[in-house]
Write a protein that binds this DNA or RNA. Structure first.
Lengths: 211, 211
DNA sequence: CTGCTCGTGTGACAAATGTTACTGTGGCTA
DNA sequence: TAGCCACAGTAACATTTGTCACACGAGCAG
């Protein structure tokens, strides 16, 4: 096995060897730097990305350039939107931005149907991806539909901590405000209250979660 | 062809005859009355519904029983959630309520994989359903994330009119308030403003769209 | 050190939305 | 007819969130 095949196998342990070989033979490896925008709203989708390393965030853009975080993509995952949109010449409904330097496999959309038909493990992966992302998006809807900003902030912090696997969050209040589509002052205010309730410790560019 | 097969063919013109025969042989027809709740949050999904007639609404429930409308299901459609969740013994994340008396085909989840593998037209239907529902949900997110209640109300009214194919909406302010997760007074207020702007005409239990 | 930028804290106020309370009106039924 | 109920209108007020203005301190560049 080549190094690349091993990398795929590690990130996607459920893929059959056949599947990995076919992917390996028909796709390319790509790297992206933190801050890169891989996919933009309105852009045509020509391929699907399998994430091997790093982290992406997927968000929805408002008309005036507001951002709204939907979910993070990590190694072993793929963008649900691209898995499906890719089948018909569709434009992207979301924006994908690199959070930590990413290494990924690019699968051309022309291969998608073939993989789907010939590889059970690919089919299961697609279905699983769709289901989990749909659930995640439903949870996002819950948050904005039913919860006030203080709860949404708590949820956001926890999710972020989970995504990076640590309890210290290195984000400015401004960045958080952007992702929750509110203003810095509101976040400052709410974080202060959380600090008073003993839920967090605040420092410059750093929030320590105590929950 | 039996009457039922004809009905399926009419509502789902893209289904191949083979596919329809297989569905016909392995599934049952069911009717539901307006007001029935077909699927509840937390319930196990044991089958998928293909809608032949009538109308369903799919919504998300909050912890305190709030409702939040996601989309309508109409003839020729199926619940995206059930198409996917059905593959693994999953519980429903949403609630489905009958708006107009429904006739539907119930497909047991055990059949799903087989249909997916053997029928191209089923595969395409599932992918199409997923994609369009995901897009619809993204639009819903846009609305609650980026727009104020007045715009959301306009969007809601237009969508409702589109769903029933007419410009007169027979809903009380209270019902609208529930689906947008706000209070009746707010809806009354906003509708009054819309009337003053000449966008609607208001009558008891009736809103006439002029846009 | 000085001056600058960035991130943060905070008060004052505006706007949107949620809540409470009360009114009126149409239609139904006893 | 009287009484009841669902629906709608609206005023007054509370709460949440957004906006503006300004101050402070850490850290960096000159």
């Amino acid at each position: 096995m080549s190094k690349n095949i091993n990398t795929i196998k590690t990130a996607f342990p459920n893929f059959s060897n056949d599947l990995i070989n076919e992917i390996e033979a028909n796709s390319s490896f790509q790297s992206f730097k933190a801050g890169d925008v891989i996919m933009r709203t309105g852009q045509y989708i020509k391929s699907t990305l399998l994430i091997l390393k790093g982290q992406l965030k997927i968000y929805r853009e408002g008309e005036d350039g507001e951002e709204f975080l939907m979910y993070y993509l990590q190694p072993g995952q793929a963008c649900a939107i691209s898995l499906i949109c890719a089948t018909k010449n569709q434009t992207s409904q979301i924006t994908a931005k690199v959070v930590e330097d990413v290494e990924a496999v690019t699968i051309p959309l022309t291969l998608m149907d073939k993989l789907m038909m010939n590889h059970r493990s690919w089919y299961e992966f697609v279905i699983f991806t769709y289901r989990t992302r749909f659930e995640e998006v439903l949870e996002v809807i819950d948050n904005i539909a039913f919860r006030a900003m203080d709860e949404r902030l708590e949820f956001y912090l926890k999710r972020h901590a989970k995504a990076c696997g640590c309890t210290t969050i290195h984000l400015s209040h401004q960045e958080i405000a952007l992702e929750l589509n509110t203003s810095r002052e509101v976040i400052s205010r709410l974080l202060k209250k959380m600090e008073q309730r003993g839920l967090v410790t605040l420092n410059r560019n750093q929030i320590e979660l105590l929950m």
